[in-house]
């Protein structure tokens, strides 16, 4: 095992952690809003969130690359605010990952929130609970299982992301070089022994995560709360 491997692994975990945290923070209230909404904009919002599921990652990566360029609006604004370039930075990877992993976090949360019956929420309202309190004291605890599996899936999906990072990351060790990119690079260099390490870690990680998510859901179903 080499130092670059640890550096890459640490960066990957940081990226996945930041992405998951941001997605939970922004995605949960958004999912709650969408689950309860019957407005005309709802299908549009849902389609936007689900877009990364069907879009080739390179397409998303391409548009982000263009958007993050210093002469673009977002890239220029970022440069003005933080005095550093957005493209090829860790921050750019976080923003891209948030977009790319959003459906894996938000969609299960919407489904879970939709399973809460309107009657249950009415009962809470009749007990003096306003809509914000209904979110905090009912929706969140009732969607506990979904929150955990959404977080795990969001994290795992970010770890496994390749195409978008390849387009906008630039493969800078310690800054934007994540596991999947490092693996690709090692293979390009015909460095199979090292590639084996990267691939093995990613494979084991994915297996563990999926087993964890499915056991969690099985346990929740057994308790009748899925």
């Amino acid at each position: 095992m080499t130092d670059p491997l640890w550096q890459t692994l640490w960066l990957t975990l940081q990226l996945a952690g930041a992405t998951t945290a941001i997605l939970l923070l922004l995605g949960t209230p958004l999912a709650w809003r969408l689950a309860r909404s019957r407005g005309r904009l709802k299908p549009l919002a849902e389609a936007l969130i689900a877009m990364p599921l069907v879009l080739p990652p390179s397409v998303l990566g391409y548009y982000l690359l263009v958007g993050f360029a210093p002469d673009s609006m977002i890239g220029g604004l970022w440069q003005g605010l933080f005095n550093q370039q957005l493209a090829f930075s860790f921050e750019a990877l976080v923003i891209a990952s948030v977009i790319y992993s959003a459906p894996f976090v938000i969609q299960p949360l919407i489904n879970s929130f939709q399973n809460i019956s309107p009657e249950t929420l009415k009962a809470a309202a009749s007990l003096g609970c306003n809509s914000w309190q209904r979110f905090v004291f009912l929706a969140l605890p009732m969607a506990k299982t979904a929150l955990v599996s959404a977080a795990v899936m969001g994290f795992a999906h970010t770890v496994g992301e390749f195409g978008v990072v390849l387009m906008i990351g630039g493969n800078i060790p310690g800054e934007t070089q994540v596991m999947s990119i490092a693996l690709y690079q090692e293979v390009e260099l015909l460095n199979y022994a090292s590639a084996n390490h990267y691939a093995g870690i990613l494979l084991s990680f994915s297996a563990i995560v999926l087993v964890a998510v499915y056991s969690l859901q099985a346990r929740a179903r057994a308790r009748g709360m899925a």
């Binding site: 019956s117 249950t120 009749s126 306003n130 009732m142």
Partner: peptide, 20 residues
């Protein structure tokens, strides 16, 4: 006045207890 500020008690047909 929204429901939550009316200080009423309401009992629904199926109880609607909170499962958590």
């Amino acid at each position: 006045i929204p429901c939550e500020q009316r200080h009423i008690g309401m009992v629904f047909q199926h109880g609607e207890l909170f499962p958590h």
